[in-house]
């Protein structure tokens, strides 16, 4: 029995040595030009140019930025000239350090709605790339209202809060795909107290989670940040956005001293290029939890409209409106 036990321990040790990591070469990556740009009506035209890198390449911002590229832009087929490289440093994504941006800017020119811009980026070391996009009109909001604390949502851990809906009515341009989101919502509120106390007026910053879709429990969930015009193309349509007010812990009948006087809405109207790109980027980032590869998420291929290269040359127009209540 003793011998059997010893044998078992030895075999157990052998098993524990089964897991081993080894290094292997991968086929070399052929770097391509990467264009990153989001044009917006009324804003200057800025384009970020870099290169792609291989899976085993140890990269930093300096060795992938392209500071000596030639970037030419055309507006409805007419050349607007070359973009100038601007050496700029900003904080990195995590805010923990500074990085160099390979940013190219077109001086003295603002992008315009309904204009189709095309770009050509050349560099002596890489194949030239081209891309084209049309700048959408800003979101034309004709009406907006907030349904305060419309549904009491109870979560799996027992926590409950009230969900509110921001209902936007928008005039949609015909024959073009538009994607609408709310970047920022502010509500101006008049607080009414006892007659003897003067009303107070203040502004609340509201977190808008995304497009409200009906969940199975009668409440709402926000799976998309952009609302689509597919059901009301070229006409007037409404989109509900899910938001949470500071009063989300109160039942509607408990809120009696608040009156909304104005909504200040910052909206973004994106074209299909930008929407497809950002949708896939968010999907890829949101699923990136497993570094070991044992339980991988399904891979996500990010959309690009850059010919011969990568990245995005898209457009989304921002606008802020005030809607009295």
């Amino acid at each position: 029995m003793y011998k059997f036990f010893c044998l078992f321990i030895v075999l157990l040790g052998l098993l524990s040595a089964c897991e081993k990591s080894v290094e292997l070469p991968l086929p070399p990556h052929d770097p391509k030009i990467v264009v990153n740009a989001r044009l917006s009506a009324g804003d200057s035209i800025e384009v970020y140019v870099s290169r792609s890198y291989g899976p085993l390449e140890d990269v930093d911002s300096e060795n992938i930025q392209l500071t000596d590229a030639t970037v030419e832009i055309l507006d409805n087929g007419q050349s607007l000239g070359q973009l100038a490289y601007r050496d700029t440093t900003v904080q990195d994504f995590w805010g923990s350090g500074e990085i160099i941006l390979g940013k190219y800017v077109l001086r003295n020119h603002l992008a315009q709605a309904d204009h189709t811009y095309s770009i050509k980026v050349s560099h002596p070391d890489y194949e030239s790339v081209t891309a084209e996009t049309t700048v959408p009109k800003a979101m034309k909001i004709t009406q907006a209202e907030v349904a305060q604390n419309a549904f009491r949502k109870v979560y799996g851990d027992g926590y409950a809060e009230y969900q509110s809906l921001l209902r936007i009515t928008v005039d949609d341009p015909a024959a073009i795909e538009n994607f609408y989101r709310i970047n920022h919502l502010q509500i101006t509120v008049r607080n009414t107290f006892e007659p003897s106390i003067p009303d107070s007026i203040f502004t609340m910053d509201i977190y808008v989670e995304g497009v409200a879709e009906e969940a199975g429990d009668g409440g709402y969930e926000a799976l998309e940040s952009y609302g689509k015009d597919e059901t009301f193309d070229g006409t007037s349509g409404t989109i509900d956005f899910l938001c949470y007010l500071p009063t989300s812990d109160l039942a509607p009948n408990e809120i009696f001293d608040m009156e909304f006087t104005e909504l200040i809405i910052t909206s973004l109207s994106a074209n299909a290029d930008w929407y497809q790109y950002i949708d896939k980027v968010n999907l890829q980032r949101g699923s990136d939890i497993d570094d070991i590869g044992l339980f991988p998420s399904e891979s996500v291929v990010v959309y690009t409209n850059v010919e011969n290269g990568y990245g995005i040359f898209g457009a989304a127009t921002k606008k802020t409106v005030q809607i009295p209540q």
């Binding site: 990153n36 890198y53 992938i64 990568y310 990245g311």
Partner: peptide
């Protein structure tokens, strides 16, 4: 497997 990557703005 990823065949490479690129920066995102």
């Amino acid at each position: 497997l990823p065949s490479g990557g690129y920066g995102q703005v």
